[in-house]
Write a protein that binds this DNA or RNA. Structure first.
Lengths: 334, 334
DNA sequence: TTGTAAGCGTTATCAG
DNA sequence: CTGATAACGCTTACAA
């Protein structure tokens, strides 16, 4: 049995109310008794039971974070950003990975809504998130990361995928490329769709043909980049540039190109998205679109705490973080 | 206000006791009433309050994880491993990063011990962890990741840093190198010390001189690898091989070497540690020591749940996971 | 300034 | 099978 407030009260010869007051800095206690109580509490290694405390105060001092997955640089960086803000606010983090599974998310939401957390940050890039709508009740502040839900856009933090992709493809066009393929991201993924739109937009505004044959499926994983690139290399005429919807696939694509004995960027230029840390260490270094991942987490957390503190679940509108082009060797610069 | 068990009971025209029983699968309710109650509970979107529940059951169905930091491939991989096992056991994860700060860890421990979690996984590579000893009480199952505490070794999961480092250095020696430098890891870091010992051991057993001048300080970050390598390149005579205590520093070292116009492995061979995902994509690809990171997390979690379930906080002894040599180009193979 | 007692939302122990 | 009612450990009016 761990020591309770009663143990402290007994040993100090006071009531539990006094112990509670003393330990919570109430002005309604003599310094003398407070000192005595604090001393005894330390001796007994007393730690208030958060369950009981939370039950009274209806607060858990915990925020929940639901991510599609827990591994990889991207998500850990988001976590780091959230953690920093949470720490500053004296809050803890309850994490869960949804594996982008609908049922998982729903059950997560249910658990998270059971008084365990005071607020929620959800990242659910799967487009089929309408079901989220039903399960997000208004008694819990929620911030959406990188996804939108009908009627809840104002609580979202987004990355400007569209503009980022458009800039990358524009840049490739500036290098003189006219036949540019794209390796698409995961099906039904919000980021993937936006990046595809950005790609198309750049082609369109430059009067280049929008050819479905140049839009090769991928799933954001390295292997899919490899196989997609194999397909691209077999196209006649061969595209002279490729925009991979993320860096992981770009890496796979690079392998495929190099295994054919082709040169980057001379034979084929390539651009990625995400600007993961590896990007600059590759040979050739990978041109990419930088995403302020860390900001994504901090922004979301800051917004959430604002909602928690204000007791109003309305936030100050949707936030869009810019994605910026980073040119390196693989696009033909340098 | 969220709906409580009382709301359900009122609407169903039964007592709260019956609702509790029905929803917890007690055999002491008619199927008829159970069905009615379940239906109403769903209608009302009733979710049991975990605070109240935890207060009664003295369980939180949550495990705590204290990591030195939250970002980077390494830690996120550990988290993933833990998450998988936790999910299988219907548990949630409360994370915290300690920033290897002594006070932080202590306050974390206190919070974690306040009924919020049923068990704890702590990764605290800082050697000065004797203070942990005082703060780990026996009423909470604890598994130590990659660190040891006097008298608590049996609950640790370790990576065989010593043997891994030794094998890498042995391998460099086999390549004919006689003057091998090491870029050391962070001061007072458990992993760093073990890897240094492994380095020395390999030299010693091969009759090579143990020269303090060849042991260059580092801190596990890329930049420190760069500056350390600069120093190494100025040594006379110049070492022909370098063992970097982790891959991040090895990457920095590679940059330093290449910026001097030197060739790897011809002019200088290099070996890292951790086998991070980037390692194989570098040019030259980086020889490293593979660490079963994912296993680290899963093993720790499995061990913890065994302790939680058995209600005995004694585990089945310390676990040491092997670290295995991965040879690529940077050491001179291939 | 301190103590008493009423909750907070559950589950568990009794009677019925 | 079901319903009161007593915990669980804490905070906080209300009394003293």
């Amino acid at each position: 049995m761990s020591t309770t407030i009663k143990d402290v009260a007994d040993k100090a010869g006071v009531s539990i109310a006094t112990v509670s007051r003393a330990l919570n800095g109430s002005p309604l206690v003599t310094d003398e008794t407070r000192i005595k109580i604090v001393k005894i509490a330390n001796e007994l290694k007393y730690t208030p039971n958060m369950m009981a405390r939370g039950l009274m105060l209806k607060k858990s001092e915990t925020i929940g974070v639901i991510l599609p997955d827990l591994h990889g640089d991207f998500f850990s960086e988001v976590m780091k950003g959230i953690d920093e803000v949470a720490r500053d606010n004296g809050y803890h983090i309850l994490v869960s990975s949804s594996h982008s599974d609908k049922n998982e998310i729903e059950s997560m939401l249910k658990v998270m809504r059971s008084g365990r957390v005071d607020g929620l940050i959800i990242m659910s890039p799967h487009i089929d998130s309408t079901s989220l709508n039903d399960h997000i009740t208004n008694d819990l502040p929620v911030v959406l990361l990188n996804c939108t839900i009908n009627g809840k856009e104002n609580t979202s933090i987004l990355i400007d995928n569209f503009e980022g992709a458009r800039q990358m493809v524009r840049h490739l066009i500036k290098h003189g490329h006219k036949r540019i393929a794209i390796i698409k991201g995961e099906e039904n993924n919000f980021d993937a769709e936006e990046r595809l739109k950005g790609y198309r937009s750049a082609l369109y505004e430059n009067g280049l043909e929008l050819n479905p044959k140049l839009e090769i499926p991928g799933d954001f994983n390295e292997e899919s980049g490899y196989t997609a690139m194999k397909k691209i290399l077999n196209l006649k005429p061969r595209p002279t540039a490729v925009f991979a919807s993320n860096d992981a696939m770009a890496i796979g694509a690079v392998s495929a190109i190099q295994s054919k004995g082709l040169k980057i960027p001379e034979d084929i230029a390539i651009g990625g998205f995400d600007d993961i840390p590896i990007a600059k260490y590759l040979k050739p270094s990978l041109s990419s679109v930088h995403v302020p991942i860390n900001n994504l987490g901090t922004n979301a957390a800051i917004k959430l705490f604002k909602m928690i503190k204000n007791e109003n679940n309305l936030s100050d509108g949707k936030t869009v973080l810019p994605a910026t082009l980073v040119v390196r060797e693989s696009c033909g610069c340098l």
